[in-house]
């Protein structure tokens, strides 16, 4: 059916180095996920690079999505949205505004708040990594 082992796509030379611009309120976990994802793709972060990956806006929200029989929160939904842009050396946008979005359901138990908080932290870290991978893949496609 036409599938073959994916061949070796060399990282385009122009995408090999990137400079990263974050807003002052970019969550540390997103920054960490971006750096991990870039490192995994073999991209080095340098101050002066042909292309810049600029994180414009990070929105995250936890809202109740289902309630139990006495109207207390049964499950939360975690939503995350990052808008970002790829710019060339003289800071002109080559991509226009891009966005990455993800959402996950979080079990919540008001009687086990501490455990729910730890669960949420792990799930959020996985979500930041999913977002970071999507952002980096779009960066590599644009930094040609």
């Amino acid at each position: 059916c036409g599938f073959q082992l994916s061949g070796y796509q060399p990282l385009p030379e122009s995408a090999r180095h990137v400079s990263l611009i974050l807003t002052s309120d970019t969550p540390a976990n997103l920054e960490r996920a971006l750096k991990t994802s870039l490192r995994k793709q073999g991209v080095l972060i340098t101050a002066d690079a042909p292309y810049t990956l600029a994180i414009r806006n990070v929105q995250q929200n936890r809202r109740s999505i289902t309630i139990d029989s006495n109207a207390n929160v049964d499950e939360y939904e975690m939503l995350m949205q990052v808008t970002f842009e790829v710019m060339n050396r003289d800071q002109q946008s080559v991509s226009g505004e891009l966005s990455a979005f993800t959402e996950k359901i979080l079990d919540y138990d008001a009687d086990k708040e501490t455990a729910s908080a730890t669960l949420q932290r792990t799930i959020k870290r996985e979500m930041w990594q999913t977002l970071a991978d999507r952002i980096v893949r779009q960066y590599i496609a644009r930094a040609q």
Partner: peptide, 13 residues
């Protein structure tokens, strides 16, 4: 004791 442990929801991850 269950200080900070609870069960993951079963899904693909």
């Amino acid at each position: 004791p269950d200080f900070d442990t609870t069960e993951y929801n079963f899904n693909y991850q």
